[in-house]
Design a protein around this nucleic acid. Structure first.
Lengths: 339, 339
DNA sequence: GGCGTAAAGGAAACCGGTGTCAGTGACAAG
DNA sequence: CTTGTCACTGACACCGGTTTCCTTTACGCC
């Protein structure tokens, strides 16, 4: 009425002729409330358009409804899919998502994250790879009483704190697919040093070769760092080899696109002269020519599961699924070797 | 000491032997404070690691420090660049970014946004295209006392509320580039109906033709919806034309990739048989073969400017820049027509 | 010495909610 | 009629900050 700003619980109480507390009971669906009273209060609430103030609520409850998404991930595809998955779950709750990208490499990164957690005291925190692999980050979250879930390419924490894909198995399957197509000289474009995903994918590659009794040759492995340019450089090294590999597994799609680029520059026909398999199934995989055979991991599904772990009432125990399977998406970048 | 939770202003006051208010003065850098007292309080703050509770602060100040990012943008590249730009500015402030994607097409979209603004009462709101073009959204923000800035492909609001690229001019330049290369039959892949960006880009295309005295032919325009598939379909239509266009301007890169895809399926050589220009300079533009000539708009710069408009003290007046120029990035997808 | 003034800082109220606990009235049992 | 129980509701303190207003102290000046 007189106040121009937001209606408060006091306004509702006064207009409905009840106490604040009763209004609070209505808002929180307390069961011990006279139906008549409830209706009267609800009517007033609707009339004046009262909406509880989340800050005041947070203060009184000594908890808030914020979920932090901390990441240092250069891949928009991944980040956005995670956001989408999280928000699908949070949409119908009173939780809000606060995004907090950080700068890997920056020496202040950890302080940066600490400041964030210290100040906001988020109820839950979602950690994306690669920084999710940092154990001290998880410890930091726990220290400040925040629930956390880490996303990663392998299970490196309890189910309660983890949503993991099984990159090793997925890559093993992908490389086996190449072997079954007849390839024996298969190059590997490795991900950046120190990344768990890079390691897992390498292990999967080696496991597949091992399964098939093919010796692992160091020369067939080229270092990359998940960027397009590094994929190009890696391809240059691999394609200089003699004999040339007839197929390449690239640890992500972006580098695979780089490999494709270099191969084409050298006049090679894909997949006739070189089969390529990527990882991630980002949009480029299906939009490039030829469309890329690649591994798809269920990002949004994992994010949804993570959101549930973060906000679910009954903690511990039934923490829901934590290991997710990836699938090989077969497109046109793989064929039998020319021979 | 006794409390295991967060240290509060009361703890600091007690340990420093001053009142809450004095601690508050220290935190807020009040000038009328004895240097000695300030130091004593600061020492205690550092010792017990006191951090003010943002919720309590928000309640007392009757304002919060939240910036909402509302969007319904299917393009991860754009969204993530915007986030990055915003956060670059917000990083050194006490503001936090809450992301709130919504579902275009959903009939509850407006309610959804209203609920968000009503509940959180964010200090500022950033609206991304295409929903930024919706005037009632801007009105809604204003209604709830939130500052807002709209991002768009043309200036459709005051400088204070707008960061705009000038798509029309940018496309005019891009198409002129094609004309100067010798093309006269230039196809247009249009963006989705009702999108301001689609309209602006179309206008730019027509302006360029007009400048060169080339009549605009309706048959050379194919409808698209910014997706890869729609680009493919549009290309099918355009490439069926006889005489065939020698060049195509696509209203975004994703559709341009679709055009490229279809053209290649038909055995056309790019750019010899068909020149292509895109828009956005997303990562696919440089990773596809051949690399795409495209228009780059300064997303992150615009987002930074928007963040400043949202949080700057001195409102109105010097609202900072609000119109930003795009640049044509020349790559390998344009050549003279084959003749 | 008395007094005005300014600097420094404290007490209490307030922001908008929630928790605790006590109080009310209706009704059944003793 | 008293008592106990139950369903419902309100008074009041509290969450952790800020604001308002007032008091205390120090100091300069006549």
């Amino acid at each position: 009425m007189k106040k121009s700003g937001q209606a408060t619980i006091n306004d509702v109480a006064r207009l409905a002729g009840v106490s604040k507390k009763t209004v609070s009971r209505v808002i929180n669906h307390s069961p011990l409330l006279n139906e008549e009273t409830r209706e009267r209060v609800e009517k007033v609430i609707a009339e004046i358009g009262y909406v509880p103030n989340p800050q005041a609520r947070a203060l009184a409850l000594r908890r808030n409804f914020l979920i932090g998404l901390i990441h240092d991930n250069p891949n928009p595809h991944t980040v956005l899919n995670v956001q989408q998955g999280l928000l699908e779950v949070l949409r119908d709750t009173e939780f809000e998502l606060i995004v907090h990208p950080v700068d890997r490499g920056s020496p202040t990164m950890l302080d940066d994250i600490r400041r964030f957690v210290e100040r906001q005291r988020p109820f839950g925190v979602m950690l994306l790879p690669p920084i999710s692999e940092n154990d001290s980050l998880a410890a930091l979250c726990a220290e400040y009483g925040a629930r956390y879930v880490r996303m990663g390419s392998a299970a490196f924490d309890d189910a309660e704190h983890m949503v993991a894909s099984n990159d090793r198995e997925a890559v093993r399957g992908a490389v086996t697919h190449l072997i079954e197509a007849g390839h024996r000289r298969i190059g590997l474009v490795l991900g950046p040093h120190g990344f768990r995903s890079a390691f897992e994918r390498q292990q999967g590659y080696e496991a597949a070769l091992h399964d098939a009794g093919i010796p692992v040759q160091r020369t067939l492995t080229a270092q990359g760092d998940y960027t397009f340019e590094s994929g190009m450089r890696a391809a240059e090294r691999l394609l200089d080899l003699s004999p040339r590999p007839t197929a390449v597994f690239s640890s992500n799609d972006t580098m695979a696109a780089g490999v494709l680029h270099t191969a084409r520059q050298r006049g090679l026909d894909i997949p006739r002269d070189l089969s390529i398999v990527g990882f991630d199934d980002t949009s480029i995989a299906s939009q490039i020519w030829p469309p890329l055979t690649t591994v798809r991991w269920p990002i949004a599904t994992m994010a949804r599961a993570a959101a549930l772990k973060l906000i679910d009432e009954e903690d511990a125990d039934d923490a829901g699924e934590s290991l997710f399977v990836s699938t090989l998406v077969r497109r046109a970048s793989v064929a039998a070797p020319a021979e």
